[in-house]
Simulated scan of single mutants.
Amino acid sequence: MRNWRIFMSLLAAAGAASGASAANVSRASFGKADGRDVEAITLSNGAGMQARIITYGASIQSLIVPDRDGHKDDVALGFATMDGYLKKPAFFGATVGRVANRIAKGRFTIDGKSYQTPVNDGANALHGGTKGFDKVIWDVVSVKSGPSASVTLRYVSPDGDQGYPGTLTTIATYALDEKNQLTIDYKATTDKPTVVNLSNHAYWNLAGEGSALGAMGHLLTIPADAYTPTDAGAIPTGEIRSVAGTVFDFRKATAIGARVRDASDQQIVFGKGYDHNWVVDRKIAAQPRLLVRVEEPVHGRVMEMLSNQPGLQFYSGNFLDASLSGKAGKLYREGDAIVLEPQMFPDTPNQPSFGSVRLDPGQTYHNVILLRFSTAPAR
């Protein structure tokens, strides 16, 4: 009898351990937008990591990650309620498209026909126009628990939406596994030739979104030999310039704040800091490759971002001006977070030397982004 009890105790313990290691998903209301319900889907794993995705903008509303001592912080900027996203939109955690980044004057041409999307960044279009994918409610297609917890969302953008041709059906899947990896998988199809360049616009502070440390002490590594300089309006000039000997050289881990205000480089003056595209490669890859590594040395959190995309837009939070209050009840100030967007290069629709963001019927657009979280020892 005693041996039987021991056996049953061990069996129960094994079952509990197995359950604890499974990634789970839960759903809740997050408010309303345009008279429709907005959902929050929370993905959790056994290692203490948790991602909350809201259907408004297919956005990362929260990402809780343990530090080297096991303390958990939310490392993604955002608002505590739906009201914040509606009153002061700032692309926090959002899926941006149809075309992420900038299109000069909002104009592009397909097969000799010109198209115009709304300008919302000076004279240029930014992140899809005045009502891009960040400002619409996506439908929940499925949620799954198991070795990887996931939610799949869909948005159907009609022909002519924001001036873009073709009905575009976009699928966004967020998946969290037991290795503290969050995968963001974007796919899109169209019924007419169009242009597509999707990305995620999360603002990261690995010290915690309410931390007074900000993000300028983060150590950044970008394995890119070149970047695309811009004009004063943040539109690439067409040049692909070497990073060697410049403030854009992050091939070795460097604190972001070390050179972010270096006015000797006109590019820093134009962007009021970093707001540029790094050329990791010239083509889309068959498999995701490392685009950037970020380490926050005080708490030890490390984030590695991989993608199949050839470009990385790095923005150092230059326009956070303390007009927004986040989830921790703290004002977001300049340099409090950074944005890292895997994508094709800015203004590619008007710059054929950069490649192509054209999507034709029968083709599938694909951008897969892997966010791998770990910790580093104290320096």
Rank of each mutant, 00 (worst) to 15 (best):
N45D: 06
S353Y: 00
K272L: 09
R68C: 06
P297M: 01
V99E: 04
G129C: 11
E304G: 02
Q50E: 09
V96Y: 14
A172N: 09
A175H: 03
G355Q: 05
S199M: 06
K330E: 10
A20K: 13
D249V: 01
G208D: 07
V292E: 07
G84F: 06
K144Y: 00
P193Y: 11
R372L: 04
L198R: 06
S353R: 02
R259F: 03
G57N: 11
G106P: 13
N200E: 06
N101M: 11
D191Q: 10
M305Q: 12
N350C: 08
A94Q: 14
I184C: 00
F91K: 06
V357E: 04
T364W: 00
H366V: 01
V302D: 02
R261K: 14
T228I: 05
A104D: 13
Q351V: 05
L291R: 10
I268Q: 05
P229N: 14
A125L: 04
G210S: 15
A328I: 10
A202P: 12
I240L: 12
A17Q: 10
T55Y: 09
F108P: 15
R289M: 04
P147H: 08
R154G: 03
S44A: 09
T109W: 11
A258S: 15
A20D: 05
N205K: 03
G129S: 13
F79S: 12
H127C: 11
G122T: 05
L77D: 03
V247A: 14
A28G: 04
D74W: 02
L198C: 05
V140S: 07
L320E: 09
S199F: 08
Q309G: 04
R251C: 04
S242C: 11
I137C: 03
R102M: 08
G84N: 10
K283I: 02
A378T: 15
L331V: 15
P165L: 15
N101E: 12
A47P: 04
G48T: 03
S307Y: 08
S323E: 13
R333T: 15
K252S: 14
R372Q: 10
G160L: 12
